[in-house]
Write a protein that binds this DNA or RNA. Sequence first.
RNA 1: GGUGCCAUCGCCAAGUGGUAAGGCCGGAGCCUGCAAAGCUCCUAUCCCCAGUUCAAAUCUGGGUGGCACCUCCA
Length: 466
Amino acid sequence: MFIYDSATRKKRKFEPLIPGKVSLYVCGPTVYDDAHLGHAKSALVFDLLRRVLEANGYEVTFARNITDIDDKIIKKAAEQNIDITTITDTYTKAYHRDMDALGVRRPTIEPKATESLNAMYDLIQKLIEEGHAYRTLDGDVYFDTRSDSKYLTLSGHNQDEADLQSRVESSREKRHPADFALWKSVNDNSITFDSPFGPGRPGWHTECSAMIEKHLAGDKEYAIDIHGGGADLFFPHHENEAAQTRCLGRHELAHYWMHNGFVNINGEKMSKSLGNSFFIKDALSAYQGEVLRFYLLSTHYRSNFNFNEEDLIASKKRLDKLYRLKKRLFGMKTTEVKTDFQTKLLDALSDDLNVSAALSLIDEMVQSANETLDSNPKDKVVKRETLANLAYIEKVMGFGVMNPFEYFQFGFDKETKEKINTLIEERNEAKKAKNYERSDAIRDELAELGVSLMDTAQGTFWERTN
RNA sequence: GGUGCCAUCGCCAAGUGGUAAGGCCGGAGCCUGCAAAGCUCCUAUCCCCAGUUCAAAUCUGGGUGGCACCUCCA
């Protein structure tokens, strides 16, 4: 297994801290709004990573946090005059709903900021004791970046004076512009938590380091094997997390750092501020979750991803082929058979998640299976191996998990489906009577409903037209 | 200004020293009552220039053109 490590900017062979085990921590969402395609990309990438690690025989402990304390949440709660937990509960549920639809497996541990306050207090307290953090007259606690000789070595940033001057200052008494808040004291009546440092709320970066110490860290040179997140988090978020953990004096934070690229829409960066965010839930109303999964994973995770519907449709056609093969073998019992294909697939994915190579292998496998089944429909060996291959793809990549008929009939209500079936029966009778004019007319009628027909030896099947 | 990334067929996209994967679209054919699906065959020398090398899309230098982060963001 090879992983591109952002910290060293090199592809490195993966060596776990503890043989056979992997600890993986990924920065999860701040639950103040519905999840967008960027959240989906990140979640999908690390879901795939987890599956590939497992396929390589590792026991993976996967933590992804839920940030449920945040200024944006507090602001929204205040604006709508509702409780903060109403917001966080709503959007945590929404996040789970969307991720489930995308086939993202739930993490092993999903720590929340509100449930990790004691761990954060411990972390802050320790940093103060060790001289790496200080309190201001305002009651804030800041991390002293100059006390960490390795600060900025992770991301490789240089901060010049002009840069630092331009940063927004929120507090008096901050010793250095780069210092960041571990604890923000709050004097107004918005949501606060009582801490050993007085009422307030934790700073942006505090929770991840605290959660990692609490849930994952062992006694090795690094707290965890792999830390992941969006590319934007590399600096300053991860730099700061790394500094916090390092200054605790026990270990460095992560042995490998992985950052996924951004999702753009029609060339524009997707962001709240530009108001062109594209919610997962909206995409899910038009396409199967798995189509989105397949599309979002089809480009290498480190590249920026330019989301557009035309590409999504082209991508869907590729997934369709997998499902048609699945349909072809529908109802047959799957047994585990090790094949060369599976070995190659895992090899491709184990090379820093080379999904393109993996998809290419899948295409070839599908084509080859179809070819054999065309010429020799009763080939039992091929059927057995193909079924095993499909099951393997399902497990490692999460593609092909749906019932193939339902996959192709996405978006039709029961009533319409009945109507379609009635028309198909009528057409078959016309066909039997060799009344092709009538049967073709029915087919045209169905085409207008967005339905394509396929006459096969097993009967007439229909699919939703793209 | 600082840091980093990218430029491969009409489109999407792998490949990072050994002579260009795969998909979409398109064309020809097989199959079919006709279709659809499936199958077969066909379509690029890798932004430009210079260099290193027996050998470069892959390394080096210089251009040109995109992009991201440095402020809330996955």
